[in-house]
Computed example of a mutant assay.
Amino acid sequence: MRELTYYVAVSLDGFIAGPDGQFDAFLAEGDHMGPVWARYRGTAPTRLAEAVGLEVDDGPFDTVLMGWNTYAVGLPDHHLASPYEHLRQVVFTRTHEAPSGSDAVRFTDADPVETVRALKQEEGKSIWLCGGGALAATLADEIDRLALKINPVLLGGGVPLFGPRGYAPRSWERTGTRAFDSGVVLAEYARRPEAAR
C-alpha cells in the first residue's frame, strides 16, 4: 500500500506560512538544500526546478495533494496553473473554479480522507501532502510519515502545521534527524504501529 507523507517547511513555532501565505522567511539557500533535495527530489514546482537545473525524475512521490490556498501560491503572479507538471496533482477545494491552463490538475470537492484511501490502494510511489494545515488536520489519521524541514525562524502567527482538530494525541517514531549549519533540521517520523487506524 502507498504511504502518505506530509513533507513541508515549518517554523520553530509551528507555522508553515505567514497569515497571508507568506513563506519567504524560510531559508532557500544553505548547506541543507542539496541533501534535502537528494532525499525529496521532485518537490519543487517543475518550471522552477528546470530553471535552476534540478532534476525532478526519480523522486519518492508520484502524486501531490494540496488545499486551494497552497495551490494558489502560484496564482496569479507566477502563472503556475499546473505547478507540479511532473506529478499527478490533486487540489481539494469546495469553492474555487479551476483556472485556465490547469488541465493537468484535478480539482475536487470530494472527501479528502476517502480520496487518500483510494489513492493508497493504487499502484505507484508515495503520495506527498504539501499543504496546507487545515487539510493536514483533516488527513491526520491518514498520514503515515512526517518530513519536517524545521527552519530557524519564529513567524509568530500564520498557517499552523496542523489546523484545529481537537485534542487527540497521536504517537510518532523518529526515523531520522539531520541538522545543518544553515540552522535547518530535517526531522522525519513514522506513525507508531499502535497508533495506526
Rank of each mutant, 00 (worst) to 15 (best):
M1Y: 09
E3C: 10
L4A: 00
L12W: 09
L12R: 14
G14M: 06
I16L: 00
A17Q: 04
G18S: 07
P19G: 05
D24Q: 12
A25H: 12
A25K: 14
A25D: 13
F26I: 03
F26P: 03
E29G: 05
G30S: 06
D31M: 07
M33S: 13
P35R: 11
P35I: 07
P35Q: 08
A38K: 15
R41H: 09
G42Q: 09
T43G: 06
T43P: 02
A44H: 12
A44N: 14
R47E: 14
E50H: 10
L54Q: 01
L54H: 12
E55H: 13
E55W: 02
V56G: 10
D57T: 14
D58S: 13
G59L: 05
P60C: 11
F61Q: 09
D62E: 00
D62T: 07
T63N: 11
L65Q: 08
M66T: 01
G67D: 04
G67V: 04
W68M: 01
N69M: 11
T70N: 01
Y71D: 02
Y71W: 00
Y71F: 07
Y71N: 00
V73W: 12
V73A: 08
V73K: 13
D77L: 14
L80N: 04
L80S: 10
S82Q: 15
S82H: 14
P83D: 01
Y84K: 08
L87N: 06
R88E: 09
F92N: 02
T93A: 01
E97N: 10
E97V: 13
A98P: 11
P99R: 10
P99H: 10
P99S: 10
S100W: 06
G101S: 07
S102I: 03
D103T: 12
V105Y: 00
V105A: 05
F107S: 11
T108G: 05
A110H: 08
T115M: 07
T115Q: 09
T115N: 08
R117C: 04
A118R: 15
Q121L: 13
E122H: 03
G124A: 06
G124H: 00
S126V: 02
S126F: 07
I127V: 01
W128V: 11
L129D: 03
L129S: 03
C130Y: 08
G132N: 00
A136F: 04
A137N: 02
T138H: 05
E142A: 11
I143M: 00
I143S: 04
D144L: 02
A147D: 03
L148W: 11
L148K: 06
K149T: 13
N151L: 08
N151W: 12
P152S: 09
P152V: 07
L155C: 04
L155F: 05
G157A: 06
L161V: 05
P164Y: 15
P164R: 14
P164K: 15
P164A: 15
R165E: 10
R170K: 15
W172M: 04
W172L: 06
A179L: 12
V184E: 02
E188W: 01
Y189M: 03
R192F: 02
E194G: 13
A195Y: 11
A196P: 09
A196K: 14
A196G: 15
